[in-house]
C-alpha cells in the first residue's frame, strides 16, 4: 500500500470512524500535569508536544489488575467461573517507535510453551500507530540499544509528522487492513508535504551490547561487588518496572470474603522484597542489589537469549521516573567493560 496522509484536524474523522466500528482510540493526553496514554473521543484531547507518555501502552493487553475467575463457596461446594476475556479493537495513536517493539517482547514471554490468552487475545486486537520522534530528551537512549526514531519493529502503521498532519505508512497486514477499513479518513499525500526531521538521541558512550550480554551470561560476574556499589542508592520501589514497556512480572491473588470472591492477576515487581520471599522466611534475593541485578539480567540477558526478543527498548522511562535517579545506562556502561 502506498503512503497516505491525514491532517491533524482529520484525526477527528478517524477517531469517529474507529469508534463507529466499536473500537477504542488511545492516544497521549494530558492528565494531572503529565502525558499519559488514554482513550480519547476527539483530536483536541491529543497532545503533540511530548517525548513519551508516562505509562506504557502494554496495559491495554496486560492490565495492571484483572479478574481471572470468580468463585463462590456454598454449603454444597465450590464453583469457579472463569471470566471471559474481553478484547476490544484498540488503536494506539502516537506510540513511540522505541516502545513499539515491546508488545512482541511481552508476547514472547506470554506464549512461551503455555499460551496466556488473557494477553494474546487482547494483543491481537491492538493496532499500533507509531509516530517518529521529532524531539528527544536527556533520558532517551533508543540508539544505544540499536533502535531509533525510524524503527518500525512492532508498529503496524508508521506515522511521520508534517507541518499540519501526518504521512501514514502501513507496515503490516494489520496496519494495511486498518488504513483500508478507515480509508475515508485518509487522503493521498499532497505534493510538497514534507516529513519533519527525526531526532536521534545521542548514543551513550561506552555501551557495547554484545560485551554486556557476554558478561551477564557468565556466572562468576554474578556476584561481583560492583553490583552492590552501582545500585546502592536504589530505593526498591516499583516505579521503573511499572513504567517499563517490557516488564512482565505479575502476582495471582484471591480477593473477597469467605463466601465469594475473585482470583486476580496483578502487576508485581521484582524490585519488591517480598516478591521472592518464601513462606519459610528464606529469600533468594534478600538485598536490593540482587533485585536490581535480576531486573538488569532480565532486560539484557534473559529477554535477548532466552526469548530472543528485545529486553530494553531505550525509552528512558525508568530513568525519568526514578526518584533517586538511578540511571540504567550507567550500569550498561559499567557492565560493558
Amino acid at each position: 500500500m502506498t503512503d497516505k496522509y491525514i491532517s491533524k484536524d482529520g484525526l477527528n474523522g478517524l477517531i469517529a470512524s474507529v469508534k463507529a466500528s466499536g473500537g477504542r482510540f488511545v492516544a497521549p493526553v494530558l492528565d494531572t500535569r503529565q502525558v499519559v496514554y488514554k482513550e480519547v473521543s476527539s483530536a483536541e484531547e491529543i497532545v503533540d508536544d511530548y517525548i513519551l507518555p508516562r505509562n506504557s501502552y502494554k496495559e491495554i493487553a496486560f492490565p495492571q489488575t484483572e479478574i481471572l475467575a470468580k468463585y463462590e463457596l456454598t454449603r454444597d461446594g465450590v464453583t469457579i467461573d472463569p471470566v471471559e476475556i474481553v478484547a476490544r479493537d484498540t488503536v494506539v495513536f502516537g506510540a513511540r517507535p522505541c516502545e513499539a517493539a515491546s508488545l512482541a517482547s511481552l508476547n514472547s514471554v506470554f506464549t512461551w510453551d503455555f499460551i496466556d490468552e488473557t494477553f494474546t487475545k487482547r494483543q491481537e486486537k491492538v493496532v499500533v500507530l507509531s509516530l517518529g520522534c521529532v524531539d528527544a530528551d536527556d533520558e532517551c537512549f533508543c540508539t544505544t540499544v540499536n533502535l531509533s526514531p525510524a524503527s518500525t519493529e512492532g508498529s503496524d502503521v508508521a506515522l511521520y509528522e508534517t507541518e499540519n498532519g501526518y504521512i501514514v505508512t502501513p507496515l503490516t497486514d494489520k496496519g494495511t487492513a486498518f488504513v483500508s477499513a478507515h480509508s475515508d479518513s485518509f487522503t493521498d499525500v499532497a505534493k510538497g508535504e514534507e516529513k519533519k526531521e527525526l531526532v536521534n538521541p545521542e548514543k551513550v558512550e561506552g555501551v557495547d551490547l554484545t560485551k554486556l550480554g557476554e558478561r551477564l551470561a557468565k556466572s562468576p560476574n554474578y556476584d561481583n561487588p560492583e553490583w552492590a556499589e552501582l545500585t546502592r542508592k536504589c530505593c526498591g520501589c516499583g516505579a521503573c518496572t511499572y513504567s517499563c514497556p517490557t516488564c512482565h512480572c505479575f502476582d495471582i491473588i484471591d480477593e473477597g470474603t469467605a463466601f465469594e470472591g475473585e482470583r486476580r492477576k496483578n502487576w508485581d515487581a521484582c524490585q519488591f522484597n517480598h516478591f521472592t520471599l518464601h513462606a519459610s522466611g528464606h529469600n533468594p534475593r534478600d538485598t536490593q542489589y540482587k533485585r536490581y541485578r535480576n531486573r538488569f539480567m532480565c532486560k539484557f540477558h534473559i529477554y535477548p537469549t532466552k526469548f530472543n526478543s528485545t529486553g530494553c527498548v531505550g525509552c528512558g522511562r525508568c530513568i525519568r521516573v526514578c526518584p533517586v535517579r538511578l540511571d540504567i545506562t550507567d550500569l550498561m556502561t559499567a557492565m560493558s567493560s
Binding site: D116, H248, C249, I252, C270, T276, L277, H278, N294, M297
Partner: peptide, 18 residues
C-alpha cells in the same frame, strides 16, 4: 523449589539467573 505464582514461566519469580 522457589516461590512461584504462575507455574508456567510467566510471572517472573522463580528464576535462578536465566
Amino acid at each position: 523449589e522457589n516461590k512461584m505464582k504462575c507455574g508456567v514461566g510467566k510471572c517472573g519469580r522463580c528464576n535462578v539467573g536465566d
